[in-house]
Amino acid sequence: MKGPVLTETTLSLIAAIPMPVLVIGQDERIRATNPALDAILGRDLTGKHHITALRQPGVIDAIARVRGSGGAASVRFVSRDRDKDTPYLVHITAASNDIVLCLEDQSAAEDVGKMRRDFVANVSHELRTPLTALLGFIETLGGAARDDATARARFLGIMAHEAERMTRLVDDLLSLSRVEEDERVRPRELVDLCGLLASVIKGLEPQAAAADVTVRLDLARDVMRVPGDAGQLTQVFANLIENGIKYGGSGKELVITLHEPTNHLRLRGQGVQISVTDKGDGIASHHIARLTERFYRVDTHRSREVGGTGLGLAIVKHIVNRHRGHLLIESELGQGTRVSIFLPVESLS
C-alpha cells in the first residue's frame, strides 16, 4: 500500500520549494514535508498519519474529498501560535496515488482588508466626535442658552475649536491622498534645507513660546541643497517640530540638527541627516514600529487634547518615501526622542 519510496532527488526538490508543502501517501501517512512546512506544523512529521498532524476538520474533510473524487480543492487553515493567528489557503491536489498540500499565506491579504475597514471606521469615528459636540452645542444655543451671553461666548469658542479640528483632519486626509498619488513622481527642483528649516522654526515660534520650549537649530553647513519638493519638505519638518513641541515639550528644549552629508547604506549613496531631538518623556519601544500607521496614537486622550489628527507621521513617511529618503525614530523612556530624516543629496537618475 505504501507506494515506492521517494528518491533523494524528489525529497530535495520538495525541500527547495519556498512554499510550505506536504505530501500524503496512499496509506494516509505523510511521505514528505519541506522546511517551510515544518516551521508551521513542527518537525518529524514524516510517517505520521496526516490527521494527527493537520487536525482541522475543514482540511481533513477536503483531503478525504480529493482522495475520493480526484481533482483539487482549496480550503482555509489557521495556524495558531500563542496569540498570533496565521491564516493559510491550503491547495490540495491529487498527484497519482499521493495528495499534495501547498499552503499559501493569506495574512497579507487579510491585513490589507482589515486595514481598509479600520481606516474607514477610524475616519468616521474621528469626524463624528467633533460633529456630535457641534450638534449638541447648536441645540443648546437654540434652546436653553439662547439668551445667555456668557454661555454663548463660551460655546461658540468650543464650537470653533471643534470645527477647526475637523478642518485639520480633512486637510490632513487630503494631503495624505495627494502625497500618495504622486509618491512615484520624483521631485526635480533643488531645495535649500537650511533656509527651509529656519523658516519652519520661525513659523512655529508662537507655539514653542506658548509651550515654553526653546528651539535650537544646529547646522553643519550654511547652505545644503537637495532635490526635493519645498512645500512637502516644509510639511515634514513642521510636523516633526510640532510633534516635538507637543509631545516632547516637558524637556523644555528641542534641537534640530542638520548633519554633514555622509554615505548612507539605506540610501545607497550620499545623504544628509536631519534630526529633531527632544528631552521629553520618550516613547515605549512597542509603540515605535506603529507610529507611522494612520490614526495610531500612543495616548489617544492626550493626542486629541493637543489637537493631533493621528495622521501627521503617516504623511511624513509618505513624503520621505517620495524623496527616496528614510525615516528613523529612536526613543528611550524618560530620556527623550530623536526623529531623523535621511534625504539623498544627489538625485540617482
Binding site: H49, I51, T52, R55, Q56, P57, G58, I60
Partner: peptide, 14 residues
Amino acid sequence: ITTLIVKMGGLVED
C-alpha cells in the same frame, strides 16, 4: 483510535 480522537479534538476546537 488516536486518529479518531485527534479528529474529534479538531471538531471540538472548531
